[in-house]
């Protein structure tokens, strides 16, 4: 099996789906000859042609709306939003239209579209190239939200997203595009949207994380194992919506202690839902406070380097939080 980066795995998934299904096409800003500003679509226009890899006008709302219409015309659009931060003009089309279409038409119209968007901080992107927006969308039934952490999952989950009959938001940890490497099989396989994945086993504390933070969590878990002898289990959430309640509860039943990591703002974030599930359905297993480690409640990640670093959760901060909970 070859070792590939996160972005290579993503590109490979799109390339293979373009190859396998003539209904699949890509649109977005600079996805054509430029190959995307992060190069996710590099080489795809040369291979599959300008009718299938389509540079869009510089207008995010229309990228999504064209995708919705094309999906209802039985195509399988992959819509790239250049940075998740730029998705807001399309909010109405995503939340009021794509997400509600199946329900509002009583199951007669479906929107099989994938929206890819790089997210997350730590790359000197400032307020508008760093945002994590999963919680905003996670309050919207009808969407599926996927945030892979490993290249293996990225390829398999993106294929599942493209084939899914529902609109799927696929957030990609841009900081990890080239930094994250892993084994990725050549050829076709899928990873199902929904179930969480235990990245690292342990009995003392459960860490819930996804995307870039899943890597930091594994790093932190290794750190406390080595330095403190604490066995932390890392649950890679992978699918934000719909929520895998059983999967989330499973590990907690064993450890009774939970730390939820996300780089999105703390308040009303994904961690609140995980904490609610654990305290409601896992109360009898609880053996300490359920903690969240997340971005502070400021609008986004500031540009200035020391402020950025202070904003972001890090393996060290996570390790400290694990120690605190483990002691409890």
């Amino acid at each position: 099996m070859a070792t590939k980066t996160l972005i290579e795995a993503i590109r490979e998934a799109m390339d293979e789906e373009l190859e396998n299904d003539p209904r699949v096409f890509i649109t977005g800003e600079d996805v054509g000859p430029r190959g995307g500003v992060f190069r996710a679509t590099m080489g795809l226009i040369e291979k599959h042609g300008p009718e299938r890899v389509v540079d869009s006008p510089l207008a995010e709302l229309s990228i999504i709306a064209i995708g919705i219409g094309a999906a209802m015309a039985d195509l399988r659009p992959i819509c790239e939003i250049q940075f998740a931060d730029f998705i807001h003009p399309a909010m109405n089309q995503i939340m009021n239209e794509a997400a509600k279409m199946y329900y509002r038409s009583n199951g007669t119209w479906t929107v099989p579209m994938t929206i890819r968007a790089p997210y997350g901080g730590g790359i000197s992107g400032g307020l508008y190239h760093s945002q994590s927006l999963e919680a905003l969308f996670a309050h919207c039934p009808g969407l599926k939200i996927v945030i892979p952490s490993t290249p293996y999952d990225a390829k398999g989950l993106l294929k599942s997203a493209i084939r899914d009959p529902n609109p799927v938001l696929f957030f990609e940890a841009k900081k990890g595009y080239r930094a994250i490497k892993g084994e990725v099989p050549d050829g076709d396989y899928t990873v199902p949207i929904g179930p969480v994945n235990v990245r690292r086993a342990g009995d003392d504390v459960t860490i819930y994380a996804y995307g870039m933070m899943a890597h930091y969590a594994v790093e932190a878990a290794n750190m406390v194992a080595e330095q403190d002898g604490i066995a932390a289990e890392v649950v890679d959430v992978r699918t934000i919506l719909p929520v895998d309640r059983e999967g989330i509860l499973e590990s907690f039943k064993k450890t009774g202690k939970a730390l939820i990591i996300y780089e999105d703002n703390l308040t009303m974030g994904y961690g609140a839902e995980v904490a609610a599930i654990l305290s409601d359905e896992g109360f009898e297993y609880m053996d300490g406070p359920i903690r969240r480690l997340a971005g502070p409640d400021v609008p986004s990640v500031p540009y200035s380097h020391p402020v950025q670093e202070a904003f972001m959760p890090s393996p060290k901060k996570i390790a400290d939080a694990i120690r605190e909970i483990a002691e409890y």
Partner: peptide, 27 residues
């Protein structure tokens, strides 16, 4: 197609449907 209450949402979607037709014919 199914419409919502916020106005004009259907217009870019209809362009998407038309894009779909053109694409389907080309492919």
């Amino acid at each position: 197609l199914s419409m919502s209450s916020p106005v004009a949402t259907q217009v870019p979607q209809a362009a998407g449907l038309a894009f779909g037709i053109k694409y389907r014919i080309a492919q």
